[in-house]
Design a protein around this nucleic acid. Sequence first.
DNA 1: GGCGGTATGCTGGTCGGACCAGTAACCCAG
DNA 2: CTGGGTTACTGGTCCGACCAGCATACCGCC
Lengths: 248, 248
Amino acid sequence: MKFEPVATVRAYERVVQQIEEAVFSGTLKPGERLPSERELMTQFAVSRSTIREALRVLQAADLIRSKPGDPRGPEVLAASPAALHKSMHRLTRADHLSLAELLQFRMALDGSAHLLAARLRTDEHLAELDAALASMREGTALGYAEFSRADVAFHEAIARAAGNPLIVVCLKVVRGVVLEQIKDRLSHAGDQHALMRTWLVHHGEVLQAIRDADGELASRLARRALYDNYAEYVPECERALLEPLLDV
Amino acid sequence: MKFEPVATVRAYERVVQQIEEAVFSGTLKPGERLPSERELMTQFAVSRSTIREALRVLQAADLIRSKPGDPRGPEVLAASPAALHKSMHRLTRADHLSLAELLQFRMALDGSAHLLAARLRTDEHLAELDAALASMREGTALGYAEFSRADVAFHEAIARAAGNPLIVVCLKVVRGVVLEQIKDRLSHAGDQHALMRTWLVHHGEVLQAIRDADGELASRLARRALYDNYAEYVPECERALLEPLLDV
DNA sequence: GGCGGTATGCTGGTCGGACCAGTAACCCAG
DNA sequence: CTGGGTTACTGGTCCGACCAGCATACCGCC
């Protein structure tokens, strides 16, 4: 004879579970609408507060979205990495990671991304990368903000060419956190024009390596560029964390 | 003259942001307690419903935990990858993340982890790895569950030796998600004893490479092992995603 | 004086009702 | 047939209430 441990589960959690299950099983497709809160409260036989807490949780998980005044009710959203992005962002901020650790992670993952991109890229990917590089070239004249936006687009295009949404999300998040950490020190960076030119040259080389399907070269260039650009912000004693990733 | 777009932000969201910020900035440390809901509602000057919705969101993000009846108030939790695991799990269920992509990510990151571990490992790390390998050897007799636990410990020790908590967390989460996806197909896997022996030999080789500080060998062995063990569960058309990571 | 059980004041969980600003669909006048 | 106003209903917020559970402090018993 064995007894099961009793789990006291909150009312709102059971509401979450049922709606969650309906979304995952496909009973509720993206774009469809949930009944209104007042309708849900009769279906689930709980109060509106309970329903609302459940909807808040689902909303925080990016499963639904509700707009005040919309008579059609809360909308079921398509699965997106937005929730992944959020929890990853929280984790990196809460863990008090050092800049060296963040860069180490970026070098490791970005290196692999370039390698994969060079091997797996299609003509569409190459076109996308060409376009991104072109808009970076234009951005040089339009100022650093515009240039930086195009730069991000280039990096994301590479991660996408690698064919892995997980890599895209992770790199995007970590890049954001790195920029947050050094943005106050970044602005004084001497000659922005020279900087932009340097990056432009580097990105051109990377793109050529990817076009040639030379994954190892693209990977090495990418890691080297990350190191060259950010190592100055890393305390010397921590640079040892990064160097093993250079000479591969 | 330029106007800013007005963002109508919900009251509960601002509560979330403030508490979140306090946790991230370290003002609120793990283990500490938040004021009670009734206290918070006077501090934020909003109603209890609003406070409760905010707390629900924070709870869903694994930042706090509240127990009914506890006079000390909601507890601030240590950063944990639980939320990350949850959202990744959701993405795989929604079919936005295939097994091939998960494995690709693991191969990329685990490869780098082994490389770093070989270069950066201290004697303590080696001792820890020796211990983990020993307990795997014992686990062989105790059945698959015990063996598997020791195996996980070995992998985590390597990620730790690489010196990057972000790598540790990401690999842990992805490993968990992968196991969830194939666990139903895993149990029929023929001769478990032979399987365990194979793994044991492989882990021994990896450990030796790390001891010899041969990062490239350790990395190659790790990626190869992942591929050999899991590729059978990946549809053939998707295996092309993994192969570029083998021959580096 | 020591100790166990109880009383108390708090906690979070849930409920019901109320009001408001906003939306989308409907209807009617042009 | 179109355009603008009406209306019914939405989600967001507030309030007040009750319950069960937890810690602590108190109190009466031994």
